[in-house]
Amino acid sequence: MKGISLLKSQRLAVLPINSYDLDSELSVVDGHEYEGEYDALTFGAWSCHVLANGSGVKSDIAFRPHSDSLTLTELGRQLPKIMSVVSNHFSLDRLQWVRIFSLRDGAMAPHVDFLEFEEPGTRVQIPLRTSEESLHSENETVYHLRRGEVWRIHTTDPHSAGSTSDTARLSLCLDFADADEPVEIRGDIPPTEPIRIIDRPEPTEAELEELMESCRNLTPATMRSGFRRFADLHFKRRSHAATVFDWYVEAARRSGDEEVIAKAQAFRTYCIEKRRQGETFEW
């Protein structure tokens, strides 16, 4: 399939996730408070929960490379079965972060990770709970990560995630130092299903015009909520992840408000072009 040939992210393995009784611990994650570190990039119900990092501090959420020992947070100590998934199947030598990303009826803005850092690491995701409505994208390809699949996410091209499900998708995210070194995986099982690429029709001119016109009255106060429609359309219609920003900037121009236009262009820069370490985007 054409989409698979274009996809830079890789399915590395499949874990025997059904052999782990995780339901009670996933409920703990459902009830865990999120500090809001990535609110500028997320729409709907998206949250990040840290199980282990370099400090052991639960509020230490924002990714950064570090040389400290991997240390469990308070949440990580409450989730021994999930942490056993990590320790049973992966070497901990290069592992720097263990987090769970929760996504329910929401989306992320297309973005490029590690813009702030000289060297990208290796990011792996393993869905612990998911549904057919929960999707990832990379450039122009949209694909689905099944429960227990181990994916190396290609983070340095525009990519995104979105879900229309009312049940939170919970994806275990492991960040390893060194982008060039392979990730060692133990105890995996043979995949039984092909990689799932989502076929989307081309957007019609009428659909795009309706999207642009719906945001003709964008103001600084409504810009953030307005962006969600652009992110959602990327998962429904064939388009490159970066095209979301082309649409959004064009809609901003139609508002005639120079502040709105400048902020739309700045959001594009922040998400996929250039970002300083510690920089935040203020809507």
Rank of each mutant, 00 (worst) to 15 (best):
M1Q: 12
I4K: 08
L6H: 11
L7T: 03
Q10D: 10
R11T: 03
R11Q: 12
V14F: 09
L15C: 11
L15V: 02
L15I: 07
I17S: 06
N18Q: 15
D21C: 04
L22I: 15
D23N: 13
S24G: 02
L26M: 12
L26W: 11
S27Y: 00
S27Q: 10
V28I: 15
V29W: 01
V29Q: 02
G31C: 06
E35K: 07
G36P: 05
E37M: 12
D39Q: 13
D39T: 10
D39V: 00
A40W: 09
T42C: 13
T42S: 14
G44E: 05
S47K: 11
C48L: 09
H49Y: 13
L51D: 03
N53W: 07
V57W: 06
V57Q: 13
K58F: 09
K58N: 09
S59H: 15
I61Q: 13
A62H: 09
S69H: 12
S69A: 15
L70A: 10
L72G: 03
T73P: 02
P80W: 13
P80F: 12
K81Y: 04
I82V: 15
M83T: 06
V86A: 01
S87C: 10
R94C: 09
Q96A: 06
V98Y: 06
F101K: 01
S102W: 03
L103N: 07
R104S: 10
D105S: 14
D105I: 04
G106F: 01
M108P: 01
H111A: 11
H111G: 04
V112R: 02
E116D: 09
E118N: 08
E118T: 00
P120H: 07
G121F: 04
T122A: 11
T130P: 01
S131H: 04
E132I: 03
S134F: 01
E138D: 04
E140Y: 02
E140P: 10
T141L: 00
H144R: 15
R147M: 06
E149F: 12
E149G: 04
E149Q: 12
R152N: 08
R152L: 03
I153Q: 04
T156E: 12
D157F: 04
H159P: 03
G162K: 05
D166W: 10
D166V: 08
T167H: 11
R169I: 00
L170N: 02
L172V: 03
L174Q: 03
D175C: 12
D175N: 13
P182Y: 01
P182R: 03
I185V: 12
G187S: 00
P190V: 07
T192K: 14
T192I: 05
E193K: 09
D199G: 03
R200P: 05
R200M: 06
P201A: 14
E202K: 14
A206F: 09
S214P: 02
N217R: 14
L218C: 05
T219W: 07
T219I: 07
A221T: 14
T222F: 05
T222E: 02
R224L: 10
S225G: 14
A242Y: 07
A242M: 06
A242I: 02
T243N: 14
V244F: 04
F245A: 03
F245V: 02
D246T: 13
Y248G: 03
A252L: 10
R254V: 00
S255G: 09
G256W: 07
E258R: 12
E258K: 13
E259S: 13
V260W: 02
A262N: 04
K263Y: 08
A264I: 00
R268C: 09
Y270S: 03
R275F: 12
R276D: 15
G278K: 11
E282C: 06
